[in-house]
């Protein structure tokens, strides 16, 4: 029973030992009669207690597959996972399915994009929350019910006792996402992975959920991995940002550093693509040309080279190596602002 989570460090203690350390994670999909597809192609990053790490990128960049691989939630057949994901001294990728099930929901929890399909439609919200506690903390249903009401209250669901009896379809999208967060928090997880938790929600509801997540990280010291396509969300929430492209991290940096001084042309391209509320009308956006269909294989080139405005000769001949460390760095032959 790991209810008494011993958070060794205080929130924000960025220099402590990593809680989760992903190294060279690779996920290869192999479908019958088709070429292998490297969805995740050597991703490494660290997450420390109380830290929020963002994985950001467009569809197909491998950000969701990364999280599913760490959680052991990829379908059993048709894929190959290699590398390591050390969580608290143990490699999650080599754990047995049953050992992984014990970790999931208790020490590591996940929040998904679509709250309706992540909740069981025929079981009440209360039952779904208490179930997690019964499973991982050995509580009886009687003991768990008041705790479930407390949890719902904590995530900002009004009138929590009555809501315990509701079914998912009786709640709005924002309330469902809150219920899902309550379930994820039921056993005080040390690591929370949120996969596009606000994409299906309206902006005003998104703002509520992001504020809630921010508060949770500060209050409990839970480490948060935030997977999103929205650089705006990242800017407001994440301490560290990893920009993914074609299954690789192409740039990493602290929140302020990365937005002030982006090095990889893709990061710059993304930032220039976003219409901003505080920019005047008529400013032309400068989008990244082409689409991911133009990508080159990483094996002998930079995947982004065909869409890159900074491309030079080596870009289409060699694989760019990681320049930097586990805190900041990029993968580019000709970064913005020169190689320094």
């Amino acid at each position: 029973m790991t209810q008494a989570t011993q958070h060794s460090s205080r929130p924000g203690a960025g220099s402590s030992e990593p809680l989760l350390s992903v190294r060279d994670l690779r996920v290869t999909f192999q479908r019958q009669g088709e070429e292998e597809f490297h969805a995740v192609d050597g991703v490494s990053f660290d997450v420390r207690p109380g830290q929020t790490v963002g994985l950001v990128g467009e569809s197909g960049c491998g950000k969701s597959v990364t999280s599913l691989a760490i959680m052991g939630l990829l379908p059993g057949r048709g894929n190959r996972v290699s590398g390591s994901a050390i969580f608290d001294g143990e490699d999650l990728l080599t754990l047995s399915p049953s050992a992984m099930r014990d970790r999931r929901g208790s020490e590591i929890a996940m929040i998904f994009q679509d709250p309706l399909s992540s909740l069981n439609p025929v079981i009440s919200i209360g039952r779904q929350v208490t179930e997690v506690m019964e499973r991982h903390q050995g509580l009886s249903r009687k003991q768990a019910t008041p705790k479930a009401a407390d949890l719902l209250e904590r995530v900002g669901i009004p009138d929590p006792k009555a809501r315990l009896l509701n079914y998912p379809h009786q709640l709005s999208g924002g309330m469902r996402q809150r219920a899902l967060i309550a379930m994820a928090l039921a056993c005080n997880p040390r690591l929370l992975i949120a996969d596009e938790p606000t994409t299906a929600l309206d902006v005003t509801i998104q703002a509520q959920i992001l504020a809630l997540l921010k508060e949770l990280v500060v209050d409990t010291g839970t480490a948060l991995v935030m997977i999103t396509h929205d650089l705006g969300v990242v800017a407001g929430l994440c301490d560290e940002v990893n920009v993914l492209y074609g299954g690789k991290v192409v740039e990493r940096g602290g929140r302020h550093g990365l937005f002030r001084d982006p090095r990889h042309p893709y990061t710059v391209g993304l930032l220039n693509s976003i219409p901003r509320l505080d920019a005047a009308r008529g400013d032309k956006l400068s989008p990244v040309p082409g689409s991911v269909a133009d990508n080159l294989p990483w094996t002998a080139a930079c995947a982004f080279a065909p869409r890159c405005s900074n491309a030079i000769d080596p870009c289409t001949a060699e694989t760019p190596q990681w320049e930097g460390d586990q805190v900041v760095g990029f993968r580019c032959f000709n970064p913005m602002g020169g190689t320094r």
Partner: peptide, 22 residues
Amino acid sequence: AVPVPDPQVEDTREQILLTGDL
């Protein structure tokens, strides 16, 4: 509520969080 891809703006601005649903 609209997130701005600029940490400085995000840190300093005042957010008006609406409660409840539509």
